[in-house]
Design a protein around this nucleic acid. Structure first.
Lengths: 211, 211
DNA sequence: TGTGATCATGACGGGGCGTCACGATCGTCC
DNA sequence: GGACGATCGTGACGCCCCGTCATGATCACA
């Protein structure tokens, strides 16, 4: 039969090819397995072998995608930051003043981590520490985005210039640590935690909510 | 010769005996070596072998004193907290109100870490992360001491009750992160950083120092 | 001086690490 | 459709670090 009579393939525009697909699938499988293993064994106790074993892939395959356990962890942090960034951007776009941005951003963050924790901080042994997120591209981008949002909204309201680096650092620090403490309490109260953090940042001690 | 004619030993009241002395010496040697190794290689890259090699002791000796690299790190953090605690207590005793305590404590902390960094964060490779201090006894004691000082001074000034756990967490978070950022700037300005942190905690954004 | 306890020592088995040569599979071109 | 080259999964391998343990040296004490 001639070639003309046949369509070359049943599907016209298939996805990027099998090679590319298994590549992203493997990468994702390793990431998912790492999330589980870190959640179950803790970061320190986890090994590359633990992660790769759970995927069914060979040990050598791991190193085709990541150089080390540290790099996988960074990739997870990067992934989290990438998923959080649109939520942050949404808040910075709809915000009219400093308070509305800070409140929206912190509440979004607290809800985000509360959801995440159910997903992968399942049952870590007590005292186990998750290392600080290294400044990966996406993590840095979140920091920069907060900083730029601060700059924009502060200039827009003709606020006096302050040390933006310190301010951003301090706000993120408060959000992160209050967020951690919030997760330890039952029930998890994102609104209460948000209220505390926002009022501390906006008005300091005198403005804090009273018990 | 009879035993009566002799004093039992040339020195009457010597230090706790040689056994005890070499024990504390070894413990200290391992701690010092660990400080150096963590400072030079970073925490992740450092191995128990690196640490013990620098002391000249045998590898097995390490395990007579510490169970793991993590435990040595905790001991270092514990040591730092133990040395900082009297400085903190001094501030909490001389403080008359909330502001004077917060200012004194944060300035003391910033000067402390600035001194410490010269001692052991010598030339760590960039991007290298030191893990968060685990809640060792002394570290926990510092947290509790801040918390109790807050409680005391706030009650003394008849301030309305607030969430002390959140407040302590947030203040320590601000101090730690602003402290880190401060150390990255040249020259290191402990007074400027203190001013920023204190004003943020006491009055929030509107009270921040202007550039 | 003798005796028991303590502790430094380093060799050892176990296992995780990162690599690499091989082979299978896929994309591509004729 | 067939053949070639590139890509990548595979798992065995050597290396080194881990934590342990039997041994012997040293110290406290009688």
């Amino acid at each position: 039969m001639s070639n003309i009579a046949y369509f070359p393939k049943p599907h016209v525009d298939q996805r990027p090819g099998k090679r590319e697909r298994t590549k992203t699938a493997n990468r994702q499988a390793i990431l998912d397995a790492a999330r589980e293993v870190f959640g179950e064994l803790g970061y320190d106790a986890a090994t590359v072998r633990d992660i790769i074993r759970r995927t069914g892939l060979a040990s050598g395959t791991f190193y085709n995608y990541y150089k080390s356990k540290e790099e996988v962890f960074d990739a997870l942090a990067d992934d989290g930051a990438r998923r959080f960034r649109p939520l942050l951007r949404e808040q910075s776009e709809k915000a009219t003043d400093f308070e509305s941005f800070v409140r929206g951003a912190i509440l979004a963050y607290f809800n985000f981590v509360a959801t995440e924790q159910e997903a992968w901080r399942i049952n870590r042994p007590p005292g186990e520490q998750i290392p600080h997120a290294r400044p990966t591209p996406e993590v840095t981008a979140v920091f920069d985005e907060v900083r730029e949002a601060f700059a924009r909204v502060l200039e827009h309201t003709h606020a006096p210039p302050v040390d933006l680096d310190y301010l951003t650092t301090a706000c993120i620090a408060v959000a992160r640590e209050i967020g951690d403490k919030m997760l330890e309490r039952r029930p998890v109260d994102t609104e209460g935690a948000t209220d505390f953090a926002v009022k501390l940042i906006l008005g300091g001690l005198p403005a804090l909510p009273r018990l």
